[in-house]
Design a protein around this nucleic acid. Structure first.
Length: 153
DNA sequence: GCCAACGTTGGC
DNA sequence: GCCAACGTTGGC
């Protein structure tokens, strides 16, 4: 059982978009960074992830998703119409992967980036490291617990 | 819109 | 393999 954090720009795909999907399941595709991709490939069925809204008025964690399908080839890499199209990727050896996520819960109120920064226990959270741009990152058990407590406050 | 930080690209 | 140039991310 592992914990993760997934970033998304709410204008592109928000937690409310996910809530409206059939069975509230959606492929987490479009990841085009090798480190993030490797994390996707390490995910196991049943792992939990925070859903984070980035590049918006109030960035922060808005809910929890579960990994319901482990890594498989991201089909957008082969679609010339997609903005995630990668002409160099070969079907015989796809460069990029995605997982399926299902909505577990949406927080009543967002845990803002500002609030996260105020928690001394979250000092080492990758998200808060200067210049961090990873869109998929691991979270430790204790970090997860600390953040969950903040959610219920 | 600004800008720091970082990843990727491509010439050499 | 080095590294400058460039593009992207993302908070502010």
């Amino acid at each position: 059982m592992n914990y993760w954090l997934l970033k998304s720009e709410p204008e592109t795909f928000s937690i409310d978009h996910l809530a409206k999907r059939h069975q509230q399941i959606e492929p987490w595709d479009g990841v085009r960074n090798y480190q993030a991709r490797n994390f996707l490939r390490n995910m196991q069925q049943g792992d939990l992830a925070f859903f984070y809204h980035s590049s918006c008025a109030v960035p922060g964690i808005v809910g929890i998703v579960e990994i319901v399908k482990t890594a498989y080839p991201d089909k957008t890499q082969f679609n010339p119409e997609s903005k995630y199209y990668d002409p160099r990727s070969k079907t015989t050896n796809p460069s990029w992967s995605c997982v399926d996520v299902q909505l577990k819960s949406k927080f009543k109120t967002i845990i803002t980036l500002t609030e996260l920064k105020q928690q001394p226990q979250l000092e080492k959270l990758q998200l808060l490291r200067k210049g961090n741009r990873l869109s998929v990152m691991p979270i430790t058990q204790s970090e997860w617990n600390t953040i969950i407590k903040t959610a219920s406050n």
